[in-house]
Design a protein around this nucleic acid. Structure first.
Lengths: 149, 149
DNA sequence: ATTAAATAGTTGTATATACATATATTGTTT
DNA sequence: AAACAATATATGTATATACAACTATTTAAT
């Protein structure tokens, strides 16, 4: 019975409401898988997200607001996340010379190595998603995209 | 192009990975709609979630662990959420006489009134979900349930 | 040139999550 | 009965989010 059993409830008024709860619940489920995956590497899911964004632009630096606009959670605080990463030598940050309002962020070799190590475990992580076929994943993606409009 | 445009990226390796990101992103999208909806009423989404659970059992009291098992986010801290609600007189809590380890939580009239007031605005909130038909919502729910296994 | 507006990022505060550890109470074993 | 295990909840710490207010810098307007 799916989501209704998972949160021990057996009456949702509408499919809409059920879907909203189902998405939130599934996101929480994925988040906890992500946490377990990343825990041995000493970073959080949000820090991982930022590192991957930076790898995508490497060796080109990125400014903070570019990072923020690419994040899954738009409201997360890029300033403080980057500071945590910098404290662990995973990124560098420097004031931009052309525009001193701006700070340029770059992933370090240590940061790249960490992502490589995590990638090596991707197969294990992907096994969490074996219940749907590729076609089903495609239609899931299409429905979610359409939902947001 | 959906999620890829939303996070300004144009290459996901697999539909699986894309779906994981899509679900997290959509959950964040819903969460922010929920925040906007509840903000005028002075409660957070998690507090709202707890209040609805308590209304579901009212007038029967619930123990903390029952609330936790019904929550969308299983790891959220029911103790502290309930304490916030109690500080706003939306719930009561008392030690159970039969089992003194246990605390019994009940929603107050003020809590019930608050939910009633929020319900009155439900139409407005549901309009966020008008892009999919009921059939599409059903298949979305089925896919999410199947994904989690 | 001066003022106003826009941009880029930082910081403070309240809320919430993640996880480990701790306390009190009850149930079970020997 | 004493010791141990299980149950129910609470708390401490680190991390992250939500939102508003703030500083610094650059651009636009008059």
């Amino acid at each position: 019975m799916g989501i209704e059993a998972d949160i021990k409830q057996n009456k949702f008024t509408t499919e809409q409401e059920k879907a909203a709860i189902n998405i939130l619940y599934t996101a929480s489920w994925i988040e906890s898988k992500n946490l377990k995956r990343l825990k041995p590497f000493g970073i959080t899911t949000q820090q991982f997200n930022v590192l991957r964004i930076l790898r995508g632009s490497h060796p080109k630096k990125m400014m903070l607001s570019d990072i923020a606009s690419r994040m899954i959670d738009k409201n997360s605080n890029a300033t403080r996340l980057v500071e945590k990463l910098r404290n662990n030598s995973l990124v560098t940050r420097e004031q931009c010379k052309d525009n001193r309002r701006q700070v340029d962020i770059n992933i370090t070799d240590k940061g790249l190595d960490l992502l490589t190590a995590i990638d090596a475990e991707t197969d294990n992580w992907v096994s969490n998603f074996k219940n749907l076929s590729t076609i089903e994943f495609k239609s899931l993606n299409a429905l979610l995209d359409k939902l947001r409009g």
